[in-house]
């Protein structure tokens, strides 16, 4: 498998990356490459140029900002998985990172790439949703901060414009319960269905691979707020959703899994 030919540029800074993106049509950022390159090899993506931000070390950090933790977009899954700070302040995130792919994927893939890619089947975007993360975007006109809940708009589509860069992910510290339930057949696989739950007084639940984008299970959250039991709330896991079909699961099976996994996640997070 060979990608179609493309030009390559290495960005020296965030500003440099933005300026290349602004000046070249159909250029794409290259971070860990673990979503983009497979698509290119299958020739499902044929960008004219790759703008490599892989060595922008200024975007690789995990920093304590008081009530939240700031994570640079180029932080690898492996570093998140092993971060002491995150383990104590946002423990769900290292755990979710540890469930992504296999060790090679975790050493290359970045949180910024994972979230920017916006794949409804990916784990970290769902964690970002359950954590009500805020995403820092930098473009030609400057910086904006977008809540994760407003970020994902369609299949592999986000609110970012083609000349914008995700630079930082902000997640609030919390001390309540949490759970991440990932259901798959092989350890290295994407989730057939996944459920993330965070309880910091409010309970937020998000779903993996239950629709075209990463999703919040809002019907479950509302039911809980209305005083429903875990059992009853879980039954609403797929309400209003149209989960995909593939070789591993019909959409009916996905709905069923979402209910079971939501119940298990809530039992763990609220227990």
């Amino acid at each position: 498998m060979f990608p179609a030919s493309f030009d390559y540029a290495k960005a020296n800074s965030v500003a440099d990356a933005v300026s290349i993106l602004t000046s070249v049509d159909d250029a794409k950022l290259l971070a860990g490459g673990h979503s983009l390159l497979p698509l290119m090899k299958l020739r499902l993506a044929t960008p004219s140029m790759l703008v490599d931000i892989g060595s922008l070390s200024e975007l690789s950090y995990i920093e304590d900002k008081g009530d939240y933790v700031a994570i640079g977009a180029l932080t690898r899954h492996h570093d998140i998985q092993n971060s002491r700070l995150l383990k104590s302040e946002v423990p769900i995130l290292p755990y979710v990172a540890s469930q992504v792919g296999d060790p090679q994927v975790r050493h290359r893939g970045t949180i910024g790439g994972s979230i920017s890619h916006g794949d409804g089947a990916s784990d970290l975007p769902a964690a970002a949703l359950a954590l009500d993360a805020r995403l820092v975007l930098v473009g030609p006109t400057g910086e904006r901060v977008i809540p994760a809940t407003e970020f994902f708009v369609g299949f592999l589509e986000t609110v970012m414009s083609p000349d914008e860069l995700l630079t930082e992910v902000r997640v609030s510290k919390f001390s309540g319960g949490w759970s991440f339930q990932k259901f798959n057949r092989r350890a290295q696989d994407w989730a057939i269905v996944g459920v993330a739950a965070v309880n910091d007084g409010n309970t937020r639940v998000s779903l993996v691979n239950m629709g075209p984008t990463p999703l919040r299970a809002s019907a479950v959250e509302e039911a809980l707020m209305g005083g429903a039991s875990i059992e009853a709330a879980s039954k609403k896991a797929s309400e209003g959703l149209d989960p995909p079909e593939d070789l591993n699961a019909s959409s009916r099976y996905r709905r069923h899994l979402a209910e079971v996994l939501t119940r298990r996640a809530l039992t763990e997070a609220l227990g």
Binding site: L42, R185, R186, A187, Q188, D189, D246, L247
Partner: peptide, 24 residues
């Protein structure tokens, strides 16, 4: 090796074709 009714093989990569590893 799963086929659809038109005779298309549906699992031509190791993402879809479930070769297990030692972990399983």
């Amino acid at each position: 090796a799963a086929y659809d009714e038109q005779g298309n093989l549906l699992d031509t990569t190791f993402i879809e074709y479930m070769l297990p590893s030692a972990v399983e």
